[in-house]
C-alpha cells in the first residue's frame, strides 16, 4: 500500500549502508530462522531418525544402525497387541473427541449468557487445562482406585453399591480400572475432562465472532431455539468446531500419559494404545527399532489431520 512512498524515501539509504532491517527479504529470513531451526532440530531430525530406526535393528543397548528393510513393519503388523492398540487408539480418539465437541458446545453456549459467578464458572472450566496432565491423571487414578475410590464410597453411601440387591451390584467396589469396559470408559472420561477446556475456549471464540445482526435478523424471521442453533450458529462456527475437533484428535492420538498412569494398557491390553505400546516395546523392552515402527503408524493419520487442520484454519480465516 505504501510501497511507492517507502521506496522513494528509502532509496538513498539502500544505495549506501542499507540496514538489515530495511532489506525485507533478509529480515524475513532472519526472523523465521529460529523457528525453522527449532522445527528441524526438534521435529525434523527426530522424525528422520525414527524412520531410520524403524528400518534398522537398533536396540536401546546397541545404538549401531544396521538396515533390515521393512522387517519391523511386517513383525509389528503380525503382532495382535499392535492391531488391538491401533483399534483402541482410534476408538479412544474418536469417541472422546465427539464427546468433547458436544460438551464444549453446551458449555460455550452457557458461558455466552450473562449470569452471576460467570467468572468463577469460566475459571473452573479452565482448571483441568492448567494442571499438568500427569498430575491430573494421578488424581483420577486415586479417584478410581480399586479399594479407596471416593466415587465408590459415594455410591455405597447412597445405597447403590455394596449390598445384595443394590443397583450397581453387591461388590464393595466397581473396580473402574479392572473391568475392560469401565477401564475404557475411564480413559475416555479423563481425556474428555482434560481436553474440554481447550475446546470450550475455541468454541467460545467461534460463538463470539458471529455477528449480532445475523442473529437478530434470524430472530426477526422467526428462528429460535434449536432452529437458530442448527441453521445459524452451528453452520457459521463449523470451521472452528472442526479445528477444535482436529486439535483434540491430535492430542488424544499422541498422548500416552492418561493410559500409562491409569491402566498401563490393561486389563489384558483392552486399553493399550499405540503410544504406550511403543514405550513398552521400544524403551522398556529394549527394541527401539520396533518401537519406532509402531510410533510411525500414527504418522499418516496425523499428517492427514494436520493437513485438514491447516486447510480449515485458512477457511475459517477467510470467513
Amino acid at each position: 500500500m505504501n510501497r511507492g512512498y517507502e521506496g522513494t524515501v528509502a532509496a538513498p539509504y539502500e544505495s549506501t549502508s542499507a540496514g538489515i532491517k530495511d532489506r525485507q527479504g533478509t529480515l524475513a529470513r532472519l526472523m523465521i530462522a529460529p523457528a525453522i531451526a527449532y522445527i528441524v532440530a526438534l521435529i525434523g531430525i527426530p522424525f528422520v531418525m525414527a524412520i531410520l530406526y524403524s528400518l534398522s535393528d537398533v536396540t536401546t543397548g546397541d545404538p549401531s544402525v544396521d538396515l533390515v528393510g521393512l522387517r519391523n513393519y511386517r513383525e509389528v503388523f503380525n503382532d495382535p497387541v499392535f492391531r488391538l492398540s491401533l483399534k483402541n487408539t482410534c476408538l479412544f480418539a474418536l469417541v472422546s473427541q465427539t464427546l468433547v465437541i458436544v460438551l464444549s458446545r453446551i458449555l460455550a453456549t452457557l458461558l455466552m449468557k450473562e449470569f452471576r459467578g460467570k467468572w468463577l464458572a469460566r475459571f473452573l472450566v479452565m482448571l483441568p487445562w492448567t494442571a499438568p496432565i500427569a498430575l491430573g491423571t494421578i488424581g483420577w487414578l486415586w479417584m478410581l482406585d480399586s479399594i479407596f475410590s471416593p466415587i465408590d464410597w459415594l455410591f455405597r453411601r447412597a445405597g447403590l453399591l455394596g449390598a445384595p440387591g443394590d443397583l450397581l451390584g453387591p461388590m464393595t467396589n466397581l473396580y473402574w480400572l479392572g473391568e475392560p469396559v469401565l477401564a475404557m470408559a475411564s480413559v475416555i472420561f479423563v481425556h474428555v475432562w482434560r481436553l474440554l477446556p481447550l475446546a470450550t475456549v475455541i468454541q467460545l471464540a467461534g460463538l463470539s465472532s458471529i455477528s449480532k445482526e445475523i442473529l437478530e435478523a434470524a430472530e426477526v424471521d422467526g428462528a429460535a431455539g434449536w432452529r437458530k442453533t442448527l441453521e445459524i450458529t452451528i453452520p457459521l462456527t463449523l470451521p472452528i468446531i472442526g479445528i477444535a475437533f482436529l486439535f483434540g484428535l491430535v492430542f488424544t492420538f499422541t498422548d500416552m500419559t492418561v493410559v500409562y498412569v491409569l491402566t498401563r494398557g490393561g486389563p489384558v491390553h483392552s486399553t493399550q494404545v499405540l503410544s504406550t505400546w511403543t514405550f513398552f516395546k521400544g524403551i522398556e523392552g529394549g527394541d527401539l527399532a520396533q518401537g519406532a515402527a509402531i510410533s510411525l503408524f500414527l504418522f499418516p493419520v496425523l499428517a492427514g489431520v494436520a493437513a485438514l487442520l491447516l486447510r480449515m484454519a485458512r477457511r475459517a480465516e477467510v470467513t
Partner: peptide
Amino acid sequence: VPEVFAWTAVSNNQALIAGR
C-alpha cells in the same frame, strides 16, 4: 475380585495393609 486386573506395583501392599 477384578481389582487384580488394575493393580500397580504397590496395590498388593496397600490391599494387605488396608486389611483387604
